[in-house]
Simulated scan of single mutants.
Amino acid sequence: MTFSVVGQVGDAFGVAVASRFIAVGSVVPAARVGVGAVATQAMAKVSYKEDVLGLLASGMGAPEAVAQVSSADEAAEHRQLGVVGVHTQATHTGGECLTWAGGACGRDVTGGWAIQGNILTGPEVVERMRETWLARTDLPLPRRLVETLLAGDAAGGDARGRQGAALYAVAPGAGYDASGVLADLRVDDHPDAARELARLLDEHELVFGAPEDVVPLEGALAQEVAERLGRLGHAHEDPAAALTAWAGERNLEMRLTQRGIDARVLEVLRRESP
Rank of each mutant, 00 (worst) to 15 (best):
residue 116 Q to N: 10
residue 175 G to K: 00
residue 107 R to T: 08
residue 15 V to P: 00
residue 103 G to S: 05
residue 139 L to W: 00
residue 173 G to H: 03
residue 113 W to I: 09
residue 127 E to I: 02
residue 165 A to C: 07
residue 70 S to M: 10
residue 234 H to Q: 06
residue 16 A to W: 09
residue 103 G to T: 12
residue 268 V to R: 15
residue 206 L to E: 03
residue 148 T to H: 02
residue 31 A to F: 04
residue 26 S to R: 13
residue 212 E to M: 03
residue 145 L to R: 14
residue 257 T to L: 09
residue 39 A to H: 07
residue 144 R to M: 04
residue 64 E to Y: 00
residue 253 E to K: 12
residue 42 A to S: 06
residue 26 S to G: 13
residue 211 P to Q: 06
residue 126 V to L: 08
residue 250 R to S: 11
residue 217 L to F: 10
residue 38 V to L: 01
residue 254 M to K: 07
residue 186 R to N: 12
residue 179 S to M: 01
residue 235 A to E: 15
residue 202 D to A: 14
residue 36 G to A: 01
residue 163 Q to C: 08
residue 264 R to D: 10
residue 273 S to W: 12
residue 108 D to L: 12
residue 70 S to N: 13
residue 241 A to P: 02
residue 156 G to V: 00
residue 133 W to L: 05
residue 191 P to W: 01
residue 48 Y to M: 12
residue 84 V to Q: 11
residue 155 A to D: 12
residue 141 L to M: 03
residue 70 S to E: 06
residue 99 T to N: 04
residue 178 A to G: 03
residue 141 L to V: 09
residue 48 Y to F: 10
residue 88 T to C: 03
residue 18 A to L: 05
residue 33 V to F: 01
residue 182 L to R: 04
residue 12 A to I: 06
residue 120 L to C: 03
residue 91 T to F: 15
residue 115 I to C: 02
residue 145 L to E: 04
residue 149 L to A: 04
residue 198 A to V: 12
residue 155 A to Y: 02
residue 207 V to C: 01
residue 118 N to E: 13
residue 107 R to L: 06
residue 206 L to S: 01
residue 112 G to N: 11
residue 62 A to C: 03
residue 222 A to I: 12
residue 161 G to F: 00
residue 58 S to D: 12
residue 65 A to D: 05
residue 242 A to K: 08
residue 126 V to D: 10
residue 67 A to C: 04
residue 140 P to H: 03
residue 153 D to I: 04
residue 53 L to Y: 00
residue 176 Y to P: 02
residue 170 V to K: 13
residue 165 A to S: 14
residue 196 E to W: 09
residue 238 D to Y: 11
residue 65 A to N: 07
residue 220 A to I: 06
residue 199 R to S: 11
residue 141 L to G: 10
residue 221 L to W: 15
residue 105 C to L: 08
residue 102 G to K: 03
residue 86 V to L: 06
residue 150 L to A: 01
residue 112 G to T: 09
residue 38 V to S: 02
residue 163 Q to A: 08
residue 71 S to M: 06
residue 36 G to E: 04
residue 174 A to D: 09
residue 22 I to F: 15
residue 211 P to M: 01
residue 272 E to M: 13
residue 8 Q to N: 12
residue 9 V to E: 14
residue 251 N to E: 12
residue 239 P to R: 04
residue 18 A to R: 08
residue 237 E to P: 15
residue 232 L to F: 04
residue 216 P to K: 08
residue 87 H to M: 09
residue 177 D to W: 13
